[in-house]
Structure formats: structure tokens, C-alpha cells
């Protein structure tokens, strides 16, 4: 894809050697598939966070959804969903988006209490997100805050794939003049291009499922099953 990608197994091995927290160490030691693994053989996990805002340094995670899948199947039985207590106050504006209120998070655990479960669910798999500027940085900041060390891992970004597939999605001055709108690469709009059903957005698990389905559709339409993982991860 567009940017030169790191050699992720090597990087994770390095992280494993340096990690102090045993949970993080175990996560890094599980590693990830080699970059030359055909995408059809890669175990993946779609993950979505609902957050109180868009800045990992100012905002906080309120819920996490994930589901395991591969090129052929999404494993419903592997689905996980956690509501976690944010460190920072909930903003009225974000409550309106994800629907999680103070009452819901009253008894919710702190992210620190579910870290082990979460990292176990992610270990050894390639994380798939729609828009990579959220999950990875938010998790990194949240872990640094709690464990005093951060996290790194490769992601496949379904939004980046859409952006790559539609390089001319912004209308030029002439088409703008005619009123053309830029082609949307948001999750539900991208899904509709592959005839995937509309799901109500902003539920972390539903969005994770929606992302997994979107990647399956993208792979089937635009990629050979033999495509090496390294072409897709970022």
C-alpha cells in the first residue's frame, strides 16, 4: 500500500524482549504472522472503540467490541464487548453519539481490570479497524497511563483500503461546481458499495462486526486470496 511498512514480527519480538508487564510481554510474544503470509490464511480480529472524543490524550475509551475472523468466516462465538469506566468525565456530546451514559458506566470496570482479557483476545492476530487513528493510539495511551508502557501492533485499516481504491474521490473544481459531493469512505457508506446491509452505528461490537464484514467484502472484490499480508497491514 501507500506507506513503507515495518517488519512487524521483528518489531513485536523486540517489544517482547523489552516489556516489563507480563500481560504485555505475553501479547508481544504471541507475535503476528509473517508479512508474506497470504491474506486468506491470516487470523484477524476486528476491533472498535467508542470514545468520549477523538483525541487520545484528552479523551477516554468507554466501550470496546471485537470479533475474530478470517478471509472466509466471522466467528460469532468469539465476540466480546466491554463497557469500561472512562478516566475523564463523559462529554454530553459523545453520550449522544454512543449512547453510553453515566448510569451504564457506574459499575463498569476500569480498563486496567480487563487488560488481560483484551490482550489475550488480540494476541497472535492482526487487528482490523475502520480508521486507524482511533483504536491503536487510544489503547497505547490508555496502557501507558495504567502500566507505564505502551503497545504497538499492526493494523489493517478498511478505511485506508477504501481511500486507496478511490483516489479521485474528491471532485475537482468543475465537478464541485456541478454540485458533486466527495465519495464517502465512512463505514456505512463503504459497506453500501459492497451491498452490505446498513447497521445502526456507534455500538462498539456492531461496528467491529461491520468492519469485519467490510474487509471480507473488500478482499473478495479487489484482492487475490494470495495477497501477502504485508501489502495490507500498516
Amino acid at each position: 500500500m501507500t506507506q513503507a511498512t515495518a517488519d512487524w514480527p521483528e518489531q513485536l519480538a523486540l517489544c517482547a524482549a523489552n516489556a516489563r508487564d507480563p500481560r504485555l510481554k505475553a501479547f508481544f510474544e504471541a507475535g503476528c504472522p509473517n508479512g508474506n503470509t497470504p491474506i486468506a490464511e491470516v487470523p484477524m480480529v476486528a476491533m472498535d472503540f467508542e470514545t468520549t472524543g477523538l483525541d487520545p490524550n484528552r479523551h477516554s475509551i468507554v466501550s470496546i467490541g471485537l470479533v475474530h475472523f478470517d478471509y472466509h468466516r466471522i466467528q460469532g462465538a468469539s465476540a466480546r464487548h466491554w463497557v469500561v469506566r472512562p478516566v475523564l468525565p463523559l462529554h454530553g456530546q459523545s453520550v449522544a453519539v454512543h449512547g453510553i451514559t453515566h448510569t451504564d458506566i457506574g459499575d463498569a470496570p476500569d480498563l486496567g481490570e480487563i487488560v488481560e482479557e483484551l490482550l489475550t483476545a488480540l494476541a497472535g492476530k492482526v487487528v482490523v479497524v475502520h480508521y486507524r487513528a482511533i483504536e491503536r493510539p487510544f489503547l497505547d495511551v490508555a496502557l501507558k497511563y495504567r502500566l507505564d508502557e505502551g503497545i504497538r501492533f499492526p493494523v489493517i485499516d478498511t478505511m485506508a483500503i477504501e481511500a486507496h481504491l478511490h483516489p479521485n474521490r474528491h471532485p475537482n473544481w468543475w465537478r464541485k461546481l456541478r454540485g458533486d459531493k466527495p465519495l464517502s469512505i465512512r463505514l456505512n457508506d463503504s459497506r453500501s458499495r459492497y451491498h452490505l446491509p446498513h447497521y445502526p452505528p456507534h455500538h462498539a461490537l456492531t461496528d467491529a462486526l461491520a468492519t469485519a464484514e467490510l474487509l471480507q467484502a473488500q478482499l473478495q472484490h479487489h484482492f487475490d486470496p494470495q495477497t501477502p499480508l504485508a501489502d495490507l497491514w500498516l
Partner: peptide, 14 residues
């Protein structure tokens, strides 16, 4: 069902 279902996307003609 909902917690054991598997999901699969198939392209037209497959």
C-alpha cells in the same frame, strides 16, 4: 443462535 452464528460475505456469482 446469535452468539454462535458465523458470518460470511459472498460475492455475486460465487
Amino acid at each position: 443462535i446469535a452468539s454462535n452464528v458465523e458470518v460470511s460475505y459472498v460475492r455475486a456469482g460465487t
